[in-house]
Design a protein around this nucleic acid. Sequence first.
DNA 1: CAGTAACCGTTGGGATAACCAACGAAAACC
DNA 2: GGTTTTCGTTGGTTATCCCAACGGTTACTG
Lengths: 152, 152
Amino acid sequence: MARTDPTGATPAHALEHIQSLPSWLTGRVATRARELVAEALAAEGLRLGHHAVLAAVVAHGPLAQAELVRRLDLDAKDVVVHLDHLQQRGLVQRRPDPADRRKNAVSATEEGIATLARCTELAEQANNRLLEPLSTAEQQLLISLLARLQQD
Amino acid sequence: MARTDPTGATPAHALEHIQSLPSWLTGRVATRARELVAEALAAEGLRLGHHAVLAAVVAHGPLAQAELVRRLDLDAKDVVVHLDHLQQRGLVQRRPDPADRRKNAVSATEEGIATLARCTELAEQANNRLLEPLSTAEQQLLISLLARLQQD
DNA sequence: CAGTAACCGTTGGGATAACCAACGAAAACC
DNA sequence: GGTTTTCGTTGGTTATCCCAACGGTTACTG
């Protein structure tokens, strides 16, 4: 594991070196994770973005879309599209905020809450399949390391 | 960290729960890693895919494109596009394989080898920035955990 | 040795995710 | 009261990944 040439300038190992970089590894793992979760959530007709938005709405009551954007760190446009989809499925509703007529007060319906519970369970199972090769301790270790990388 | 409700059915924690799943964390970290590396490689006019393809060509001598596809696990179309770009920049050349007229023998030019060395250095620095919040031991731990997830 | 199957490079199209620019309406600021 | 900022929305762009199909070539098989 300790390579004598950290820059990979040794031609014979150039490929293996690149494939051991986090930028490569996280890309591959993230792609596979997305596939697994998307496949699981397909049973509910939702995708990762929908799941995240729905969870934020359920968790933090009625809130404006701009607040969703800030909490999830997503693009405002994507939030609009995701909410359109969720609203069309009756999982979420947009009401005008009487205190600020620019805002929509987004809240979850009962079916939205129930759907979120099912989706969260499905996402959990998909992640378990992803993490299968690791022990429980290693799984939590990986999660905490990733969380620290992402905080900035 | 040990949550009593692993399914996140508690509404108030639904969002935090999703954001602690590897499917979410790896997605965010992978995006940031790609940004950092892409920004670094822009100095050479290349992108992640080009870097990987160029590294494989330099490392494993003249080889057919189908062999590149197998080694890198990339889509055949993307390999064609990346090679077109690399060839146009004079970093790589395609020659007909006399032993099998279906194949192209892809090899790197001297400038390709030199460019790869610079790109690898740049990618290394970008990854160091990404991994900055972690200690050296933690960095290697993260890499080995990710590698084990990706092997299947 | 003819006929079929498999492989090779290439082209076309499509799906997804993430991002940026700009707009009218409304509120906040000074 | 006029400027600035916020909010929701629409439009378009880019990068990555994947699938289907094609002509040309080789390998397999009866």
